[in-house]
């Protein structure tokens, strides 16, 4: 009798695997999953071995699939801010580059330079890489070169508030010849340590403008 009762208790876990916290899934692990509910048709196309396609004459019950994928990096392994930025890197960068290209079609023939201003150097490099790729994929001419400033310029600029520092740096790039009339610089900027989005600024002909 005890075996029957235990069998009944564990029967649902055998036939009903669920990503929600429960008998077989801890709450912590469940929170590492990103899930999406899709129709049975879409699920059978994406997972042909696991989900049966709908019957030609319809189903007796409404079927749908909850598709979950585990996040690669578990919570706590990276700084929350880095994780928030990196986990949506492609979307963030696509958004910023499209605003640059769409808002300034007159710069389409220029060579684009990219610079990222983010406190962490590895994340900054990732931002720059992703932005360059996004611009190239939009058919623009992009260079790996970065405009340079003299040590004196850097010393002055780092003591200015951000709303003045970026326009001033843009002017200096133009003045010292680091950027010419054939160049446009797309800067990816994080302005506040509490935000999980990025901003885009554009420097062309010594003029700075915020895009987003």
């Amino acid at each position: 009798m005890i075996i029957v009762i235990l069998g009944l208790l564990f029967l649902p876990t055998l036939i009903h695997k669920d990503p929600a916290p429960g008998m077989t899934m801890s709450r912590t692990r469940s929170r590492t999953l990103e899930c999406e509910r899709i129709t049975a048709e879409v699920a059978s196309q994406r997972y042909p071995g696991k989900v049966q396609p709908s019957r030609p004459r319809g189903e007796y019950l409404e079927r749908s699939a909850l598709v979950c994928a585990e996040r690669l990096v578990r919570p706590g392994l990276r700084e929350d801010r880095d994780e928030a930025i990196l986990s949506s890197l492609q979307a963030l960068v696509a958004d910023l580059t499209s605003s640059a290209v769409d808002l300034h079609p007159e710069l389409a023939s220029r060579t684009w330079l990219v610079e990222a201003f983010y406190p962490s150097a590895p994340v900054s490099a990732k931002l720059s890489f992703a932005t360059k790729n996004a611009l190239v994929e939009r058919g623009l001419l992009v260079s790996d070169r970065t405009p340079t400033l003299s040590a004196g310029d850097v010393d002055v600029l780092t003591r200015m508030p951000p709303e003045q520092a970026y326009p001033a740096a843009c002017r200096r790039y133009n003045d010292n010849g680091s950027m010419g009339a054939e160049h446009a610089l797309l800067a990816i900027v994080s302005r506040d340590p509490r935000e999980t989005i990025l901003h885009a600024g554009l420097c062309a002909d010594g003029q700075w403008s915020w895009l987003k």
Binding site: R31, L66, D80, E83, A84, T196
Partner: peptide
Amino acid sequence: HVYQPLSSLHRPVVVD
């Protein structure tokens, strides 16, 4: 009752 965040609800939050 069991709650499971599916998307966006369990993204990292930086702001306090």
